[in-house]
């Protein structure tokens, strides 16, 4: 079983990102579970969400405390990823919405013994659609970096959730971010 913990801010679609990941995995015939952590529902407040993916039925109904993967979709939070890696397993992955050079994160990769993957979802979404949309590009980065779900399954999950212009925008962001992921070996 692979456990993912998502971090971001209220209004950025953390919950939807996790939800779409679970849907994509289920569409691929895997077992998956998405579970949001709701606090006070304020725009801008830190939000977490959890996804589990497994080849076996998932019976657990509890939070994720030792994730295999941490995704930080807010670029201001991702500038200081140390604050979001609590419990991250050694050998796991950190996926960040990050504008700088991925090489600058080598100390974290070394200290925590994790792989670091980045994509500049902030720039991509501003360039592509003129507004900030982080969750779907970060889902693309997660899919590419982890191989947990295929790009086609993510597209199907998007089609089950969006239509019209929203779908078209998200599909574009997905493709673009998928191509631009950088990984720190």
């Amino acid at each position: 079983m692979i456990e993912v913990r998502w971090h971001g801010r209220g209004g950025q679609g953390v919950v939807t990102g996790s939800n779409l990941l679970a849907r994509a995995a289920i569409l691929e015939g895997k077992y998956a579970q998405h579970f949001p952590e709701f606090g006070p529902e304020r725009s801008g407040a830190p939000v977490r969400s959890y996804t589990r993916i497994s080849n076996q039925p998932i019976e657990l109904h509890t939070g994720v405390y030792n994730p295999d993967i941490v995704v930080v979709i807010d670029p201001t939070m991702a500038r200081n990823p140390e604050g979001f890696v609590q419990g991250l397993k050694r050998g796991g992955s950190l996926v960040l919405n990050y504008a700088g050079d991925v090489g600058r994160l080598s100390h974290i990769a070394g200290e925590l013994d994790v792989k670091v993957h980045v994509v500049n979802a902030h720039r991509i979404s501003l360039e592509e659609v003129g507004r900030k949309i982080y969750n779907v590009p970060m889902l693309a980065a997660l899919a590419r970096a982890s191989g947990l779900v295929g790009l086609e399954a993510v597209k199907s999950a998007l089609r089950s959730r969006f239509s019209g212009e929203a779908l078209e925008i998200n599909l574009r962001l997905l493709e673009k971010a998928y191509r631009e992921v950088e990984s720190l070996a």
């Binding site: 998956a32 998405h34 579970f35 709701f38 998932i58 109904h61």
Partner: peptide, 12 residues
């Protein structure tokens, strides 16, 4: 159904 734990969880 447990609020949030089941009501807001995606499962197969």
């Amino acid at each position: 159904l447990d609020g949030f734990i089941l009501s807001h969880s995606v499962e197969p």
